[in-house]
Design a protein around this nucleic acid. Sequence first.
DNA 1: ACCAGCTCCTGCTTGC
DNA 2: TGCAAGCAGGAGCTGG
Length: 283
Amino acid sequence: MPELPEVETVRRGLVPVLEGARLAQVIVRRADLRYPLPPGLAEALRGCRIERLDRRGKYLLAFTDRETVLLVHLGMSGRILVSARTLGQFHRGGAAADRHDHVILETEDGARVVYNDARRFGAMDLCAADRIGSHPWLAALGPEPLGNAFGGACLEAAFRGRRAPVKTALLDQRIVAGLGNIYVCEALHRAGIAPTRAAGRISAKRLDRLAAAIRDVLRDAIAAGGSSLRDYRRADGELGYFQHAFRVYDREGAPCPAEGCAGRVRRIVQAGRSTYHCPVCQR
DNA sequence: ACCAGCTCCTGCTTGC
DNA sequence: TGCAAGCAGGAGCTGG
């Protein structure tokens, strides 16, 4: 799925289209995403003005003028694409409506925002704005890795006593919000930490390095518009290009890009998911 | 409490 | 070329 940098890129692409816009029409073509869409979602959103778009971890949050919040998670294959109406017709790079276009928002200004999700692992919900902090999707999320509260000390506290491999621990959204398989692999490589190392057995100094590596890789990826692999696109339909900057992810057998390292990238499987790492410089 | 494994769904890639 | 298996960026649930 889209991880934090991809969701943030989508959010930034939607800001000029949705912030301040009123929804003239909301069409639900398929309500069975990961969970059923809340009943009456289309009616509840129709006529709303979107005040602000925010992001928490991998969740997009749209605050409306009715004191409600639309929560959107893109799952593994979710995309949000924007097109404009010209001459009364919508066009989307010439493409016809796709069978995986599940939810469509049309603004009064004539923009169309389409939620497309082939695998339907994504989800949406609507929540009262004053209860957003206790929404079950958000309540247990760990700190925002790009926020001021995040650092080595957070990781130290969350990892204490944990025997799970650090790779697996970092995928746990309760420890830090927004990381997925790609950026965990990349951050561990940048920090020189072996993905198999028990989370609770990493020194405070190295956890500082890890926290810094997480922030760096996320910032770099956002600056590049995210990573485009199979499904992900930016809201404008353009591809992100951070995938060209991967140091280890999906690079099995390639020489390790670390300065002066003679190792090669290896792929292992942890908790059923691919981990890419350099066994020489990651200890 | 913690952790590994399985599962949801579809589409693309790989290997025979 | 055709077909089936395997794999994919997430995360909730189960059971040890």
